[in-house]
């Protein structure tokens, strides 16, 4: 066999392997990363919905969320000041570095961030959201079977009723 062709083939294989590796790392940047543990955060933020991973919002957004807990998306989620400050400090330490603001104001909803919209817009059409076991984008655990453990990897996604066609 032509040695040049062999070298080229080897180079191509390396390139493909490198691309796969890079892709799996970027996928893990959001999907596979473990959520750092903080019992008070998990307990308090996980009472009414999954405790959303801190990296999904910027520190600015978390400060805004935690400043309005007495009117938290239509419900009173108020905390004692000491617990609130402790959890906010954890959220700030682990917040995402992406800007999650719109029109100069920090977004409060994870589901409105550019990253979330991009990840879910095509994969989760309205029909899937209407399914009784899904109901809301706030219901992470409906499809992300590891959500309660902070695992959002692609391979752990189970859409109730199956993937849309």
């Amino acid at each position: 066999m032509n040695p040049l062709r062999n070298t080229l083939r080897l180079a191509a294989m390396y390139a493909i392997a490198a691309a796969c590796l890079a892709h799996s790392f970027s996928a893990h940047a959001d999907g596979g990363k473990r959520v750092p543990d903080h019992p008070a955060w998990k307990q308090e933020c996980g009472s009414c919905h999954v405790a959303y991973p801190p990296r999904l919002l910027s520190a600015d957004s978390w400060r805004a969320v935690m400043a309005g807990l007495d009117r938290h998306f239509g419900a009173d989620a108020s905390l004692e000041p000491a617990a609130r400050d402790d959890i906010l400090a954890f959220l700030e330490r682990n917040a995402g570095r992406r800007d999650t603001s719109a029109g100069g104001r920090p977004l409060l909803r994870v589901t409105q961030t550019r990253w979330f919209v991009k990840e879910h817009r095509d994969e989760v059409p309205a029909e899937v959201l209407r399914r009784p076991d899904v109901k809301s984008f706030a219901n992470c655990g409906a499809c992300h079977s590891g959500a309660d453990r902070g695992v959002y990897a692609e391979r752990d996604i189970r859409i109730p009723g199956g993937r849309p066609r």
Binding site: C48, H49, A75, S136, N139, G141, A142
Partner: peptide, 9 residues
């Protein structure tokens, strides 16, 4: 068991 009226949890 119940279910959260807004989030379904």
């Amino acid at each position: 068991p119940g279910r959260h009226a807004a989030t379904g949890k």
